[in-house]
């Protein structure tokens, strides 16, 4: 198989001379689609991160379908790319196609989500955020902020059954464990949307004595928090003061709310998954095997982290 040999030769060749040749690398990225603003931001950040390093990035949009992703990966293999990035739409069913990539000696890096496989050698590394940790950061922030005062928390969960929702709930509970003054008194799903977040918050406020019994709101994503902030305002309370607001994702609009004092903190789910992946890839081509899991930082932003500048930096990312 001359083609395979050629690929092998290319792989070996790049293997020896890498750092200088990062500029000539071509990476194929099988992206899930553009179902959310975060996803759009991830795609646009991937492009800029590739440009920064002089890497050619080919993006294939799978429109939420695994078969499209498999097709894209096969076509990347046929094109003989130097590496494949995969944001898998589901966790299972990748063994065959990733086996083909392995045979062609093309390293695969998973972005944002993990896969389930018996053979971990099918991928080089996975760059993901730890959503349990995200919840924990939010919980710890709240414990530190209330500093021992009693605090009854209402929680807006994500979609029931979504792993992110389960993890962010678990993480928050971990974060507040040990602080007996912080208690979750009500928890309901806001389905990750502004409308539902607002509706559920309205009912929380009414059920808890017009909101007087609520000290803080924890929302599994910023959009629900933004909806809830309006509900708090319409009830005649001050979000950010009467009810503390902490949420996860760090979308641009939450920074506006933080700047106006209506939200207090947000934990970032960085859209920059490709950056660490490119670095790992370049290091790998230079001979350094990366760890199997690269955890992205879950950074906390408050009014002290210059929310206006954060908003400006994010608003054009496609969120």
């Amino acid at each position: 198989m001359t083609f395979k040999k050629l690929l092998l030769a290319t792989a070996l060749f790049t293997g020896v001379t890498v750092p200088a040749l990062a500029a000539d690398m071509t990476v194929g990225f099988s992206q899930i689609g553009s179902e959310s603003g975060w996803r759009a931001a991830e795609t646009s950040v991937s492009k800029t991160e590739a440009e920064k390093r002089g890497i050619t990035l080919k993006i294939a949009d799978a429109q939420q379908k695994q078969e499209n992703q498999i097709k894209a990966i096969r076509s990347f293999i046929a094109q003989g790319v130097d590496a494949i990035f995969l944001a898998p739409v589901v966790a299972t069913g990748w063994d065959a196609v990733l086996g083909e990539a392995k045979d062609a000696e093309i390293p695969v890096i998973l972005l944002d989500r993990d896969i389930e496989t018996k053979d971990p050698s099918l991928y080089l590394t996975a760059v993901t955020s730890d959503s349990v940790h995200e919840g924990e950061v939010a919980g710890k922030w709240l414990v530190d902020t209330v500093a021992g005062k009693a605090c009854d928390v209402v929680e807006l969960q994500g979609t029931v059954g979504a792993s992110v929702a389960t993890n962010r709930k678990e993480g928050f509970e971990k974060g507040i464990a040990g602080a007996d003054n912080v208690k979750i008194i009500r928890s309901q799903t806001g389905e990750f949307t502004r409308t539902k977040g607002k509706e559920v918050m309205e009912s929380f406020i009414k059920a808890e004595n017009g909101g007087k019994g609520i000290c803080a709101l924890y929302a599994h994503n910023d959009d629900m928090a933004l909806g809830a902030i309006q509900a708090i305002k319409e009830a005649g309370l001050k979000p950010g003061t009467d009810i503390l607001v902490v949420s996860i994702d760090s979308v641009p609009d939450i920074f506006k709310a933080i700047a106006e004092g209506e939200a207090n903190a947000t934990v970032e789910l960085t859209p920059n998954m490709a950056g660490p992946a490119f670095d790992a890839l370049i290091a790998y081509k230079g001979g350094t095997e990366p760890p199997k899991w690269l955890q992205t930082e879950s950074k906390l932003y408050t009014k002290d982290s210059n929310p206006e500048a954060q908003y400006e930096a994010r608003k054009s990312l496609g969120y």
């Binding site: 179902e35 959310s36 949307t193 502004r194 409308t195 607002k198 959009d223 933004l226 309006q230």
Partner: peptide
Amino acid sequence: IVAADILGADANNA
């Protein structure tokens, strides 16, 4: 009404 309620249009979920 739904858009006015949240002061924004969320095409994915509205």
